[in-house]
Design a protein around this nucleic acid. Sequence first.
DNA 1: TCCCAGGCTCTCT
DNA 2: AGAGAGCATGGG
Length: 270
Amino acid sequence: MTQKYENGNVILTLDDDLDLGLCLDCGQAFRWKYDESGCWSGVAHSQKLRVSQNGDTITFYDTTPEVFERVWSGYFDLNRNYRDIVALYTEENIKIACAKYPGIRILKQDEWEAICSFIISANNNIPRIKGIIERLCEGFGEDLGGAYSFPSAQRLSTLTVEDLAPLRAGFRAKYIIDAAQKIASGEVDIEKIKALPFDEAKAELLKIKGVGEKVAQCALLYGFGRVEAFPVDVWVKRILAELYPKGLPQCMYGTQGIAQQYLFHWRRNI
DNA sequence: TCCCAGGCTCTCT
DNA sequence: AGAGAGCATGGG
């Protein structure tokens, strides 16, 4: 991978698989929009970004090498070689899924944003999840100039369920408030969770109302970068029943979360 | 009208 | 411990 800085843009030449469209619109992050000029626009880690792809070239517009290093390199998981990981998947079905959708990666999102976003995802569909999160950010995030940050737990912890009524989040509003309060108070400590073994980290997240097994696995995978997390939703449940009734193939062990993302996308798009 | 959506909580066995 | 109802909202 090579990188240059030109006219205020960071331009990347890839030597690994990365498909922006797949990464940003495969149900793991909810704040990216594609415009007809061929760019993706969104916000992560309180940074606005416009980014486009042309083959092996990715252009990060109006940013700096410093911000790229600090934010986007990690967000797009650029220090992990996905070709090497996918090469380890020798079972037939996962090979098909990976071959059909090369370039899916696990985004390393902000921990709090992932927790909150996947609380909102419960018994919900992706377009509506995006809408609720958009209203949450516009209503309570910081103005970054035409875009809004994901509101901090500290900010949301001062609100009531009634304050969140405009989100139309339904029964999830009370869970958002509970999560914000527990994170803001340190009762559930994100810094501590980062250092805990997987099961203990998950147990901490399960203290939050509205966080069950699936949401905890999603938060650990997409927020904490724990690629051994394995969220099981209705689609993955179908995959397990149809393809792996006797359990996951051994070849996925350790990076089940990555394999899961390919399988999820594949099964959803059949 | 019913069913479903990247589920969870609560209650009842 | 495991099963089942109820839950807010909106699209098909």
